[in-house]
């Protein structure tokens, strides 16, 4: 059974077509990079997979079942600016907030919940900062809080929206290694990014998206200039092609 299966997905926003005929599969162990220019529909695709936006047609299944918010084995790491960083809350409580839906109404976090939070913090190496207010973290540490919050649900599929944006090279590398090892632990990881170099470097597969899927393959199989110029709308002499080592 596939970790994630998207078939013939169409999405309209504000009466305009945004995604058309999206077909995408993820298996466990894969780290897939979802690449495309601004407005290509990357965030929309992630939201459609999470059933956060209405779709026009097509199906999305996770572990063979249709997605229902709060019920599916799927973790989400939204863009960093979605989070209220000046909220007076410590790192471990912020991570615990990811389990709010699972704990359920009128219940308090129990031992199992705190253990899940502890494991997630260990996984992203934030255990030493667990009592620090989230407002006093660096960008890279914040990104790791969001990853830990998603991991606190022990999901088998992980969706990441632009996790590298605004981070320096060493931090990007650290996070890239983290995502690689998360995928290696039998998870399926799908991440959008504008960092083409990091994507070509660390992803097992790349999906080029611009309203529809233009190419889908291993980085070594995407060395033609054609799909890249088509996706990003750049010319054949664009430095972008050098960046991704396509000719």
């Amino acid at each position: 059974m596939r970790a994630l299966d998207v078939e013939g997905l169409d999405v309209d926003l504000g009466g305009r077509p945004v995604l058309r005929d999206i077909r995408l599969h993820l298996d466990r162990g894969e780290l897939v990079g979802l690449l495309g220019p601004n407005g290509a529909g990357k965030t929309t695709l992630l939201r459609a997979i999470l059933a956060l936006t209405r779709t026009r047609g097509g199906t999305v299944t996770v572990e063979g079942k249709p997605v229902r918010p709060g019920r599916s084995e799927i973790g989400y790491v939204p863009q960093r600016h979605e989070f209220t960083w000046d909220f007076p809350i410590s790192v471990d409580q912020a991570v615990m907030s990811g389990r709010t839906g699972r704990i359920g109404l009128l219940r308090r976090p129990g031992v199992a919940d705190w253990r899940a939070v502890g494991d997630a913090l260990d996984r992203v190496q934030l255990t030493g900062l667990r009592h620090r207010p989230v407002g006093e973290l660096s960008g890279g540490q914040r990104q790791r809080v969001l990853v830990a919050r998603a991991l606190a649900l022990a999901p088998r599929t992980l969706l990441l929206d632009e996790p590298f944006t605004g981070l320096d090279m060493p931090t990007q590398e650290l996070l890239g290694d983290l995502f690689t090892s998360l995928a290696a632990e039998d998870r399926a990881v799908l991440m959008t990014t504008h960092d083409l170099v990091a994507a070509v470097d660390s992803c097992t597969r790349l999906v080029l998206l611009n309203g529809r899927i233009i190419a889908d393959g291993r980085p070594v199989d995407l060395q033609d200039a054609e799909p890249w110029t088509k996706t990003f709308g750049v010319s054949h002499t664009s430095p972008l092609l050098k960046l991704v080592r396509a000719t």
Partner: peptide
């Protein structure tokens, strides 16, 4: 903290 994530959690 995060409206988007809250929706994804089924709240």
């Amino acid at each position: 903290l995060d409206r988007e994530m809250s929706r994804a959690m089924g709240l």
